[in-house]
């Protein structure tokens, strides 16, 4: 125990080094980052260049390779596995970005190319951007704000938050809430096992929307003039609505469907045992 403590202190005390390098690239290229432990932040600028800044102990080196349109960045341990490295990388706005980490929180700002992030431990936070987002973590929250592209987000532990997002959404969680505020999408598929699902946004004509949870509620806030065929499914939960729909003699099992407006969109709301609510944005909103 004492020797492990001494070893830990020695590692912590290892001097930190700074790597800072910038090189020219084509605007439509791609950044690939692999990191076992540490932190990754990616931001954009208007220059056709990539800048890599890294803070790392002397026991871990930073490997940067540039070939054609692809820039690869990772960390290598000089004696054993790599220690924690903090990357701050700046790329052209139109760059695509792929990040793979093990225990590494990731933050990306204003990257318009496609973004793919996969980590095991650590939250993923994305601001802005116009590309396709594919975000996966096992233990960490996923947050997307101000994105203008499709979002596919999956986490196991902790929730997913989407705010001011324009683009199709696929959100999956096991133990966490899914919250979608000011979302404009033609297709939404949001599902969790233990947690609530909430949505506030437009229901587009002929769109398809599915909101599902096992333990938890489903709450939708939609415009008063929504046109949707709504299907509500529950085993032993409840249903309440601001729209002129009432449930009579609720019994277990299967599902009930009703039409609002022209019924052009398809909306499915499912909760095994929780409260399902359909709320109207604006006048007539349910006051609690």
């Amino acid at each position: 125990m004492v020797s492990a403590f001494v070893l830990g202190v020695a590692l912590l005390a290892a001097p930190q080094q700074q790597t800072d390098t910038t090189f020219a690239v084509s605007p439509g290229g791609r950044l690939d980052v692999e990191l076992m432990v540490g932190q990754v932040s990616v931001e954009s600028w208007e220059r056709n260049a990539v800048r890599v800044r890294a803070t790392h102990p002397s026991t871990t080196g930073v490997d940067i390779r540039h070939s054609g349109d692809v820039v690869r960045v990772d960390a290598e341990g000089r004696r054993g596995p790599p220690a924690a490295v903090t990357f701050v990388i700046t790329v052209p706005r139109t760059f695509g970005v792929n990040i793979e980490g093990l225990s590494a929180p990731v933050e990306v700002r204003n990257v318009d190319g496609n973004l793919a992030v996969e980590t095991t431990n650590g939250p993923i936070t994305v601001f802005g951007g116009r590309g396709r987002l594919e975000l996966e973590t096992t233990n960490g929250a996923i947050t997307v704000r101000g994105a203008r592209g499709s979002v596919r987000a999956g986490t196991v532990n902790q929730g997913i938050t989407l705010e001011d997002v324009e683009g199709d959404v696929q959100a999956q969680a096991v133990n966490g809430h899914i919250s979608m505020q000011n979302v404009r999408a033609r297709s939404v598929d949001a599902e969790t096992v233990n947690g609530s699902v909430s949505f506030r946004g437009a229901i587009q004509e002929n769109g398809r929307y599915r909101f599902s949870t096992h333990n938890g509620g489903v709450t939708l806030h939609v415009p008063a003039d929504v046109s949707a065929t709504v299907t509500v499914s529950t085993e032993n939960g409840t249903f309440d609505s601001d729209f002129p729909v009432q449930v009579q003699g609720r019994r277990r099992g299967d599902r009930a469907t009703f039409t609002l407006g022209t019924g052009s969109a398809r909306v499915e709301m499912e909760s095994f045992g929780g409260r399902i609510e359909l709320r109207r944005i604006g006048g007539g909103e349910h006051q609690q």
């Binding site: 729209f243 002129p244 729909v245 009432q246 449930v247 009579q248 003699g249 609720r250 019994r251 277990r252 099992g253 299967d254 009930a256 009703f258």
Partner: peptide, 11 residues
């Protein structure tokens, strides 16, 4: 009179 009534139908 109040709108649409739904009757849940069991399997």
């Amino acid at each position: 009179t109040a709108g649409v009534w739904l009757t849940w139908a069991p399997g």
